[in-house]
C-alpha cells in the first residue's frame, strides 16, 4: 500500500494539481522518496542548523550565551556545513515547451519546472548552492548560485512565474550561462532540445572538465514520440509560422524513425562531451529522474 502511495506522489498528473513548488518538492522528496539523500554535514557553515546540549571539549564559541542567560543551561549552536558544490538548473521555457497532448497531464514546461523544484529541494537538503537559469529567445530568469533556504524559496518563486513563450535560442543562452558558472558545478539542462543536436554538444564541452558535470534531461510530450492519434491534421509550428496538412497515420512510421534517430544522435553527441542524457516524456513519473540526479550528485 505504501508503495502505491509513493508512486502516486510521483505521478505528474497528481503533482500537477499542486501549485506551490515548495510543497510539491517536499511531497516528492520527503513523502515519496524518504532517505534518498545524504544527511547534512554539521559544522562551520553560514546557516544555523539546530541547538544541542553543550558537551565538554567543544569550542566555547559555539555556546549561545543568550540562551544560557535565560535558561541557565549551556547550549551550543550547530551550523549547516556548506558543501562548496553548486547545482545550476537550466530551463528552456520557449513556446514549444508549452505543448500538452491528449495523453499528457501537463505541459512540458510544467513537467520541467516540477523536476527543477525537486532537484532544488534535494540540493538544498544536501547543502548545495543553487542557481536557476531560464531562457527562451532571451534570459527570462537568472538566479546566481547561492546556498540557503532563502535561495531555495527564491527559486521556487521564479519557477512559479515562468511561462513558455518565444522561440528558443540555446546557443546564446548557454554561452551566457556557462560564462558565469562557478567551480564544482553540476548543470542540469531541462529542455526538449529540438533542433539543438549540432550546437548543444559544442556548448557543453565544459563538461569535459572534472570541475563540471552536466545532466541533460530531454522533456518530450508523448505526441512528439509518435504523433497525435488524429486522422488528419493541419500542423502549425509553435515557434514559427509553418503549416503542414497531413494524415498522422500515414506518416507515423517515418516520423518515429526520424525522431528516434534524432534522439540517438543527440545522445551520442552528448556522451562524447561527457554529458549525461536522458529522454523523459511528460506522462512518466518523476522518480527515475530524481534517482538519476541523486546518483550523479552523490558521486561527488
Amino acid at each position: 500500500m505504501a508503495a502505491t502511495v509513493d508512486q502516486q506522489l510521483l505521478d505528474p498528473s497528481h503533482l500537477n494539481r499542486i501549485e506551490d513548488f515548495s510543497l510539491l518538492a517536499r511531497v516528492v522528496v520527503d513523502g515519496a522518496m524518504p532517505g534518498v539523500h545524504r544527511s547534512l554535514k554539521q559544522g562551520r557553515g553560514s546557516e544555523f542548523y539546530q541547538y544541542r546540549p553543550y558537551t565538554r571539549g567543544e569550542d566555547l564559541k559555539l555556546i549561545d550565551w543568550k540562551v544560557f542567560a535565560k535558561r541557565d543551561e549551556l547550549v551550543s549552536k550547530t551550523f549547516q556545513e556548506d558543501t562548496n558544490f553548486t547545482v545550476c538548473l537550466v530551463l528552456d521555457v520557449s513556446a514549444s515547451m508549452g505543448y500538452q497532448g491528449n495523453r499528457a497531464s501537463c505541459t512540458k514546461a510544467r513537467y520541467a519546472a516540477m523536476l527543477a523544484a525537486c532537484f532544488a529541494y534535494l540540493g538544498h537538503r544536501q547543502g548545495d548552492r543553487l542557481g536557476l537559469f531560464a531562457y527562451s529567445d532571451r534570459v527570462k530568469e537568472w538566479i546566481r548560485p547561492r546556498a540557503g533556504s532563502g535561495q531555495l524559496n527564491k527559486i521556487f518563486t521564479a519557477l512559479q512565474g515562468l511561462k513558455p513563450e518565444g522561440i528558443n535560442a540555446h546557443d546564446f543562452a548557454w554561452d551566457r550561462m556557462a560564462a558565469n558558472l562557478p567551480g564544482r558545478t553540476m548543470v542540469v539542462f531541462l529542455s526538449d532540445f529540438l533542433d539543438a543536436e549540432d550546437t548543444l554538444a559544442e556548448s557543453l564541452r565544459f563538461s569535459l572538465s572534472p570541475k563540471y558535470e552536466s545532466l541533460c534531461l530531454q522533456i518530450l510530450d508523448p505526441d512528439e514520440i509518435d504523433l497525435p492519434d488524429n486522422e488528419s491534421l493541419r500542423f502549425a509550428e509553435m515557434e514559427g509560422d509553418r503549416e503542414i496538412s497531413t494524415s498522422p497515420s500515414s506518416i507515423r512510421e517515418g516520423y518515429r524513425n526520424d525522431m528516434s534517430g534524432f534522439i540517438d544522435d543527440l545522445h551520442s553527441k552528448l556522451t562524447a562531451v561527457s554529458s549525461e542524457f536522458e529522454t523523459l516524456t511528460t506522462d512518466k513519473d518523476l522518480g527515475h529522474s530524481l534517482r538519476r540526479f541523486l546518483s550523479m550528485r552523490n558521486k561527488k
Binding site: S96, E237, G240
Partner: peptide, 16 residues
C-alpha cells in the same frame, strides 16, 4: 490548425 512543437519530421500527405 493544430499547434505542434516542431514540424521538423512531419511531412505532408494526402488527407482523406
Amino acid at each position: 490548425k493544430f499547434y505542434f512543437p516542431s514540424l521538423r519530421f512531419i511531412r505532408p500527405s494526402q488527407i482523406p
